[in-house]
Design a protein around this nucleic acid. Sequence first.
DNA 1: GCCTAGGTTCAAAAATTATTGAAACATCAG
DNA 2: CTGATGTTTCAATAATTTTTGAACCTAGGC
Lengths: 173, 173
Amino acid sequence: MKPPSEKSAGRRKSRPSFEPLQPHEIELADFFVRMAGILGVPRSVAEIYALLYVSSGPLDFDHIQGRLGMSKGSVSQGLKFLRGHEMILSVKEKGARRERWQPTPSLAASLVALLRSQVLPALEQAQPGLQRVLADAQQRAAQPEVIERLTRLNRWNSRALELAPLLLPPPGA
Amino acid sequence: MKPPSEKSAGRRKSRPSFEPLQPHEIELADFFVRMAGILGVPRSVAEIYALLYVSSGPLDFDHIQGRLGMSKGSVSQGLKFLRGHEMILSVKEKGARRERWQPTPSLAASLVALLRSQVLPALEQAQPGLQRVLADAQQRAAQPEVIERLTRLNRWNSRALELAPLLLPPPGA
DNA sequence: GCCTAGGTTCAAAAATTATTGAAACATCAG
DNA sequence: CTGATGTTTCAATAATTTTTGAACCTAGGC
């Protein structure tokens, strides 16, 4: 908690104060936070996205920080995450110092990209291991049922890897 | 670390000792753990599932606890979770006291069920809120772009809710 | 009924993950 | 180059989640 008196504090520089979130904004943020939670995306990231999503124009760093009342560090990391997953775009007006952010047009595409980035690496990394596990089981002449399971798992993994690039072209294509 | 000397400790009752996981089992467990992590399923649950998945027959409580070296509490909660999501089945031989567990036949179905159980409630709960947020925006005559976004979000939500029961019939159908 | 194997619960401890904020860095106007 | 604004980094802290284990149920055999 910080001292709430910020009325006529520092006139110079006029640190602008921002409104806290409105009820309708909170509602939307809650929704995004919950959905994000399922994918293990931290609350702060979801809140930033939600704010940009309901806002009329692009917002700059300070607005985001001010309205959500979170630290600089969190805002910076949150924007980095969203940028990295191509969920937001910067709209820098020429001659302006600061960047302003808005959501990318398609939330659907954003979600797919996000999923991709989480699932694909795991699938890729697992590929050789899974094959080895199966080979191992065959060599040990394990129960047919187990071999069957492991075979199916391998097929799945391969198919997922084949399909993935179709679902959404990789970041540079 | 526990004292490794458990050779001729207590003859009566013969507390059976279990082998630690073999390399191939560890590999598979790692895979499941990583995948589960994406959905926020705890490591211990994924490990239990993985163990049942590579094992030739159904395993009982003590085997699971012993081979994974985890506490009773974790095993109990893990089985509860897996049971609740219909990812495992109990095979109780008649005349036997203890239950023995094995994975349900379709991992795919299990995954869908798991997703459903996480996503659906969120969608349902959000429905009225999202509609309110949209109405609110329309009333405030917000930017067309924002209204457009919120409209699409609502459409999505509704469609997802309609489609859900088709994807997999609800637990009792 | 009483006892015991088998399992669950849940508060406390441990592990993990997210957030903060101050210092460091970058970039641009002058 | 200099100074200020705008942003990132990251170690420390806070919050959250997971695991543990001991006390507590519960059903079945005797």
